[in-house]
Design a protein around this nucleic acid. Structure first.
Length: 312
DNA sequence: CCAATTTGACCGTC
DNA sequence: GACGGTCAAATTGG
């Protein structure tokens, strides 16, 4: 299977990311009436700059292969405590425009700081073949550190943290909660971004899991996405090209900085739906057939990566 | 033996 | 005090 190489995928991701941030800034009206706070604008600017820097780095002959964020964007890390969340863009998860502390003096995040971490929820349906294995299988490696019975929930909630928390001070966590109503659905809540080297997955690992045709579609969709200025929807990836059990994930972006948020449910009506499908042929398994549903009626945290629905 | 998981205890928040 | 989230000792598995 001819696949789009990772440099190109990452490059496109960065360009898209920068474009989105730029458009959000562009769409922001006059300062007085703007829904963007100064901080949000700074964040957007920061992301635009970092996206272009990373894109330039990629074009500059170096590959992102096995390059952790610390090397990919050293200038960003030069500012203590400010690291852009970006690895999720590589994997196809929604990426947050938010920043979070990783280099603060106390390596332990206080609960307050944890609250500041970007958080999004993915609903994952298990496949009959893979059974319960599916929802826990994504590109990142996690270590379970707890399980709790949740009040009113039929099934316990599992808590996972990044395997590299101690070695690479990666504070990403996730919670997995089996849905009461539909036991085949797992609600996976991610918190924080990976700052470990998993954030930029290696481009190819032929010996790992079988190839997935999604990668090609990923390339096409990204290109379409750019061409159509994010106003269209690409489709046709569902059943035939997807071998990972995840089906129809939908995301719920939650608050950061105590600000606004954008909740998007699976049933939310949307005037715009941007679809990116991607494959990560890295160590574990490819996961994302990502459907970003943009609900124009939702309250939007402009710091978050809702797909832009304005034309340029 | 080492790493991952389990599970009761502990802690912070409401 | 109840609840959700995390810690860490004990246990399990490769």
């Amino acid at each position: 299977m001819e696949m789009m190489n990772w440099e190109h995928m990452n490059l496109l991701n960065e360009l898209i990311h920068g474009l989105k941030a730029a458009k959000q800034l562009q769409a922001s009206p006059s300062p007085s009436s703007s829904c963007l706070t100064t901080e949000m604008k700074e964040t957007l600017l920061h992301n635009i700059v970092s996206s272009f820097e990373k894109a330039i780095l990629m074009l500059n002959g170096s590959t992102t292969q096995n390059i952790p964020m610390t090397e990919l964007a050293p200038d960003l890390l030069a500012h203590p405590g400010k690291v852009p969340e970006s690895p999720t863009s590589i994997t196809g998860s929604p990426r947050s425009e938010e920043f979070f502390d990783v280099g603060s003096k106390d390596c332990n995040l206080s609960s307050k700081k944890r609250k500041m971490l970007p958080k999004w929820t993915e609903q994952v349906r298990i496949s009959p073949e893979r059974g319960l294995e599916g929802p826990h299988d994504d590109v990142f490696s996690w270590r379970k550190y707890g399980q709790k019975d949740i009040l009113g929930a039929k099934y316990p909630r599992s808590y996972y943290r990044c395997t590299f928390r101690n070695t690479q001070y990666c504070w990403a966590t996730k919670q997995v909660q089996r849905s009461d109503g539909d036991p085949t659905i797992f609600e996976v809540t991610y918190r924080g971004a990976h700052t470990c080297s998993q954030g930029i997955p290696p481009p190819e690992k032929p010996e790992t899991k079988p190839n997935h045709t999604v990668a090609v579609n990923y390339q096409n969709n990204l290109l379409d996405y750019l061409r159509t200025n994010l106003t269209g929807r690409t489709n046709g990836l569902e059943a035939d090209t997807f071998s990972f059990p995840v089906t129809s994930p939908f995301y719920t972006y939650e608050s950061i900085n105590g600000g606004t948020f954008c909740h998007v449910g699976s049933s939310a009506p949307s005037d715009f739906t941007g679809l990116i499908s991607t494959n990560t042929s890295t160590g574990n398994s490819p996961i994302f057939d990502v459907d970003f549903h943009f609900d124009p009626t939702a309250e939007i945290n402009t710091g978050f990566p809702t797909f832009l629905h304005n034309s340029i």
